[in-house]
Nucleic acid binder design. Structure first.
Length: 764
RNA sequence: UCGGGGAUCGUCUAAUGGCAGGACGUCAGACUCUGGAUCUGACUAUCAAGGUUCGAAUCCUUGUCCCCGAACCA
């Protein structure tokens, strides 16, 4: 893997490696819950986590997140392992299980209780919900929150002992019922579940919640980068809380893992949620989890998609934090791109029409002749060929003959000559029509046209064919997109209403060339001019071949059906509608001034006395610290507009308290500093305090470089980039910024950019 | 008492104050014993407005839109 692509997660890992954050270790994990089949969205995550492990020469743990016995099953454990290995990744043959850590998690929970960090709560689930408050209202503490530690400990042990029924009580973290992040309002750590677990059997009747089990599992294994999807952003604070207060990583001699969230894969014309996929299976809209129309790994495998194609898609779509919906065409591209290079070409006719070559001898063998046809076209450059028998009676595709050809039709029609792929050219003689339908076409072959074009005759195209006497029959299953609309989950009503009505078409009398008789189930082929197909791994038998269409060939414009996908206005989702409106920072500042006369007075003064704009005055009077800073600086002699500019454009505005004094600020704005140098000094003064003159002097920024020095740097930069200079002189004036940047960089920030620009313009 | 994220060609994704680039797609052409593949060319973007700066996709402000969070699910 020479040019490994990067992304923001790999950037973080690189940084951590550089700084030695995890002692140079990298360890990822893929943590599915065994409650469903893996789908293409999981594939992206698998490629990410296992891909990183490969790239850094480490391991990715497959860990089943099996903390909810009522939903989980070994059937899923097995399918998940199979799918990961099929995708081409290795987890060392042994999967890990969160349930293996139940005892340690339990002990750590007792520790939390002993530290006063957790308590047993006897509120009912309705009460817990009620006490939790809402998005815009704080919660109230549970009456059990401050019960004695000993009581909680005894009760927790009783929970474990099995003496308590489901729902009697739960273990909760004691964090903050008023936290703005609802995940931190005393979240549940353990609940009672008298249920049989697929691995631990009946050993436990209490089970840890995800938010507790997950960080602990990561830490126990020594995971360094715990990569998950965006919806867990709110959980990160709790993830860190659990690590901090159990100190579990430290107990295992590891650094604490870091949770990083990325955007899950969404594909248009597809649904991806486990619940909806389960509905499709259970309600019989598809033939099972491995139905070739399903976006499951098992479905795509049966459809004939290769692991390489799926990995290529993951590579193609990249990793970022933007919610996105990937064009399903990208998947199709990856599939075709892979198959073009790997699938041998053979011939097969889906909807047969009899073609009689009258110039051939009559009889069963029909003056048989055999062509040696290569499996791959020259551009693919792979070896191999097979014999293709030819005879008097052939099958051709019904679509490849037209009595009245439409414009641009490059196939057989009255008066025309076409090439039989790998064989002769044939010229139309006659068509037999019965009941308005063409039932037979008669042609004469041109003997000298094997490997050569006929003299003086136009060849209207190339069509595929199969010798009728030698053909083998096959069932062909043509799959289309499962959903007819780009976003099946968006439309109101049930998503199954958006199913494509004929997403599976079964053709029974297809005719294949005889070489396919020995093809292996699961093998992939291109039926030339028709598409890519795979012998169905389940239903295809020797003598009774079943082909699944993996994909059509890419079709050029004239043949392609115009598919209009009108962009319906998206409807806001139901949850978004219930969310309370937020107030803006501007509203908060206005409220602060209404509350605080001093702020209101400053707001007024800054505008009327010091001449600041209303906008700046507003920003500077939202809180005391800022108002005092600007007014203090002005009192110390600072120009009001300059001081205001620096405060208002401060990247840390409102994020951190000022370390500088108003006098520092006043001294700063009086300094003859500009450009990056000024920013550097301001940032340091703001963060650490101190006299800006000293800061500037210490950094050597108190004096701008003189023209002589700058002039030399300009000459150096011009000499170092002759190609850019040529482009600039050729009219690419945008490059001026590039040159200025180079010179300023070379001067370590001392050159004055406006002066550099002048000098550059003179000399370019 | 609301909090956390996000917005760059039609789509996905780069550019971490200095040339808005790549891929998919679309269109046009070349080539072709697959209407495939390949090749060439074209197309199209920084959510909006203000500000800072020699220079802004990137920094600041305001606004708009989207996603996530109130399971004893993960």
């Amino acid at each position: 893997m020479a040019d490994e692509r990067s992304d923001f997660i790999r950037d973080i890992i690189e940084d951590d490696l550089r700084t030695g954050k995890h002692g140079g270790r990298v360890l990822t994990r893929f943590p599915p819950e065994p409650n469903g089949y893996l789908h293409i969205g999981h594939a992206k995550s698998i490629c990410l986590n296992f891909g990183i492990a490969q790239q850094y020469g480490t391991r990715c743990n497959l860990r089943f997140d099996d903390t909810n016995p009522v939903k989980e099953d070994t059937e899923y454990v097995e399918s998940i392992q199979r799918d990961i290995e099929w995708l081409g990744f290795s987890f060392g043959g042994t999967a890990l299980y969160a349930s293996d850590y139940f005892e340690e998690m339990y002990q750590l929970a007792e520790g939390l209780i002993a530290d006063g960090k957790a308590y047993v709560c006897e509120l009912t689930d309705e009460q817990i919900k009620e006490y939790r408050g809402t998005l815009s209202e704080p919660g109230r503490p549970s009456p059990w929150r401050d019960r004695p530690i000993e009581d909680s400990l005894a009760l927790f042990r009783k929970m474990r002992s099995g003496a308590l029924p489901d729902g009697a009580c739960v273990l909760r973290a004691k964090i903050d019922m008023a936290a703005a992040n609802m995940k931190m309002r005393d979240p549940l750590l353990y609940r009672i579940r008298h249920a049989h677990h697929h691995r631990t059997g009946d050993a436990w009747c209490i089970y840890p919640m995800y938010d507790y089990a997950h960080p602990l599992s990561d830490a126990i294994e020594g995971i360094t980068h715990s990569i998950c999807t965006l919806e867990f952003e709110n959980n990160r604070e709790l993830y860190d809380w659990a690590l901090e207060h159990t100190r579990v990583a430290e107990k295992h001699g590891f650094t604490r893992p870091q949770q990083i969230e990325f955007a899950r894969l969404n594909l248009d014309y597809t649904v991806m949620s486990k619940r909806k996929l389960l509905t499709l299976v259970k309600d019989g809209h598809v033939r099972g989890w491995d139905d070739p129309r399903m976006p499951t790994i098992a479905g795509m495998r049966r459809r004939g998609y290769s692991p390489e194609a799926i990995r290529a898609l993951a590579e193609l779509v990249g990793v970022a934090k933007t919610n996105s919906v990937v064009d399903i065409g990208k998947l199709e591209f990856c599939v075709r791109d892979d198959l073009n290079r790997t699938a041998p070409r053979v011939m097969g006719v889906l909807r047969p029409l009899k073609l009689v070559v009258t110039s051939y001898e009559a009889g069963a063998a029909g003056g048989a002749q055999t062509f040696d046809a290569p499996y791959f076209p020259p551009d693919v450059g792979k070896p191999g060929s097979r014999p293709v028998p030819m005879s008097r009676e052939l099958w051709i595709e019904r679509d490849d003959f037209a009595l009245e050809p439409p414009e641009g039709y490059q196939r057989l029609a009255p008066g025309r000559t076409v090439r039989l792929r790998h064989g002769h050219c044939v010229t139309f003689e006659d068509a037999v029509v019965e009941g308005g339908e063409v039932v037979e076409v008669r042609v004469r072959h041109l003997p000298e046209t094997l490997g050569a074009n006929p003299q003086g005759v136009k060849v209207s195209g190339v069509i595929h064919w199969v010798s009728a006497a030698h053909a083998i029959d096959a069932e062909v299953r043509l799959y289309d997109r499962l959903f007819a609309v780009p976003r099946p989950e968006d439309a109101e009503g049930d998503f199954v209403q958006n199913l494509t009505p004929g997403s599976l078409e079964v053709i029974r009398g297809a005719k294949l060339e005889p070489s396919l008789a020995t093809a292996a189930p699961g093998s992939r082929w291109q039926l030339e001019r028709v598409g890519y197909f795979v012998l169905d791994a389940v239903d295809s038998q020797p003598g009774a071949i079943v082909l699944n269409r993996i994909s059509t060939l890419r079709e050029a414009a004239p043949a392609r059906a115009v598919e209009a996908a009108p962009a319906e206005p998206r409807e806001k989702n139901a949850k978004a509608k219930t969310r309370p409106a937020k107030r803006s920072p501007a509203e908060y500042r206005a409220e602060a001034r209404a509350r605080d006369e001093a702020l209101a007075a400053a707001f007024d003064r800054l505008q009327r006395v010091h001449g600041l704009s209303e906008g700046d005055a507003d920003l500077l009077t939202g809180e005391r610290a800022v108002a005092e800073m600007i007014e203090g600086a002005i009192a110390a002699g600072a120009a009001p507009d300059a001081a205001a500019r620096w405060l208002v454009n401060d990247p840390s505005f409102g994020k951190a308290p000022y370390a500088m004094t108003p006098a520092n600020l006043a001294a700063f704005v009086a300094l003859p500093l500009a450009g990056p140098a000024a920013k550097e000094v301001f940032a340091k003064m703001r963060a650490e305090g101190g006299d800006p003159r000293q800061i500037a002097a210490a950094a050597g920024l108190d004096q701008a470089a003189d023209d002589g020095v700058v002039g030399k740097l300009v000459d150096d930069v011009i000499a170092a980039h002759p190609d850019k200079v040529a482009q600039y002189r050729g009219g690419k004036v945008g490059l001026l910024g590039f040159f200025v940047g180079q010179v300023v960089k070379a001067s370590a920030g001392k050159a004055s950019p406006p002066r550099v620009q002048e000098l550059l313009k003179e000399r370019l």
